[in-house]
Design a protein around this nucleic acid. Structure first.
Lengths: 235, 235
DNA sequence: AAGATAAACCTACGATGTAGGTAAGACAAG
DNA sequence: CTTGTCTTACCTACATCGTAGGTTTATCTT
């Protein structure tokens, strides 16, 4: 990133003419920002090159000057979201640090619930996308875990995170809303379908404290990690 | 489902004319079966009404006589896969039973890896789709867990299952194939990107024994479940 | 002044999901 | 046997999609 002023003074790293129509000059950044906004507003399924271009006041094909194709846009959205994740400084307490990182990650996903499936699904290998991995692995290793086990632990936590977040973010009202009347109706319906236990559990299935689920799972996994660490140190 | 024979004897619950062209008579079942086959062959992204119709030797629009729309087909595929899951009879050992159910579920997903994202993503509320839930909840309850905790446990395991299976089924070679040469290249590349730990972990990240990851996670979760049960009984 | 470059635009193609309409065989009622 | 209803398959048509290919124009370099 070197500062290299040419002779011409004005400004603008933008090269082409300043739009023929009225667009204030496109750029990869602007395209991706608007794409993320579009996803946040309407969901992944509603993303199309044409709609995105319309929001930018630009011809659909102009997007291809800044982005390879639609898939690259989805990748870009993923990276944008990941880049917006600000992991806290380590405190030295491994378990607390990992828990906090997971919490921050979850918060980020909840900030972009409609984009979350992208982030959770696409496994990017850019350095941007691997930054969190870097931090976690580093802390696990400095805590004394052999690399193989560190990767193991990382994957287990990641799998759980993916799973809960997927559920939390989809969050369709599978068992009706909190409406107790609807739940009751669903309940008798289930009982008649040969699902007595599910029927009995309907009130519990109808509501879901995602945060509690998240904390519970993390506690279990981190406890297992502690046990693993203790075993390693004993050796 | 009452048996009510009319006078005319021949057979065939099929009503319409036997194809104008040469199709051997469509049915919801045939459509869904072929749809699953299509997914297995080419992946979810390649499913289209037209392609599906072509495989059935039928006009695309004919499908709509047996299925509401494309989304219903995807739901149908999900149910087909779920229906093909044969959970074993309970042995009485709760933990072993749950582990075995998870294994069977995993096997089913691996039998239809390309359909798995559908099954894992869509949360269906049909009695077909809820059958596994019924079994698990029932066993957890008869083991002595309060319903609230049973639902809790179910969700934790499910989240982990979803996560690992999503990873396993996508299984893109994030870090190159097993090719040691490619790994080494990737490795120096990562080191230069300010990701020293990831770089060092590259050999471990490059390979992934999904089965071991699965077994590890399940062991941790089931151990936590045991602890929970012990706590409940003590109370 | 002349040429190169980059960014915007435009046209067009094949593919998609599906609304709306038509035709033809099967059954029931007369 | 005729007539009408029903079911199912077929056909046409439309809006929308991603994007290949080509054209225009404003800016920078020489």
């Amino acid at each position: 990133m070197l500062i290299h002023m040419t002779s011409s003074p004005p400004a603008a790293p933008r090269r082409g003419r300043p739009p023929r129509g009225a667009a204030p000059g496109l750029s990869r950044q602007r395209v991706l920002d608007e794409a993320l906004a579009l996803v946040d507003d309407e969901g992944i399924g509603e993303v199309s090159m044409r709609k995105l271009a319309r929001r930018l006041g630009v011809d659909p094909m102009s997007l291809y000057n800044h982005v390879d194709n639609k898939d690259a846009i989805l990748d870009g959205i993923t990276e944008l979201v990941l880049a917006s994740t600000e992991f806290p400084a380590p405190t030295g307490d491994l378990r607390a640090d990992l828990l906090e990182m997971a919490r921050v990650f979850r918060r980020t996903m909840l900030n972009h619930p409609r984009a979350a499936p992208l982030v959770l699904t696409r496994q990017l290998a850019s350095s941007q996308a691997l930054a969190p991995t870097e931090i976690v692995l580093d802390r696990l290793c400095t805590a004394g875990l052999p690399m193989a086990d560190a990767v193991h632990a990382l994957r287990a936590v990641l799998a759980f995170l993916m799973g809960t977040l997927m559920r939390e973010v989809n969050a369709g009202p599978t068992f009706g809303t909190g409406n107790p009347q609807a739940i009751e109706a669903r309940r008798t319906e289930l009982a008649e379908s040969g699902l007595p236990t599910v029927s009995a559990a309907a009130p519990y299935l109808a509501v879901c404290d995602h945060e509690a689920e998240f904390e519970f799972g993390m506690r279990v996994l981190l406890e297992a990690l502690d046990a693993e660490l203790a075993r390693t140190e004993a050796r």
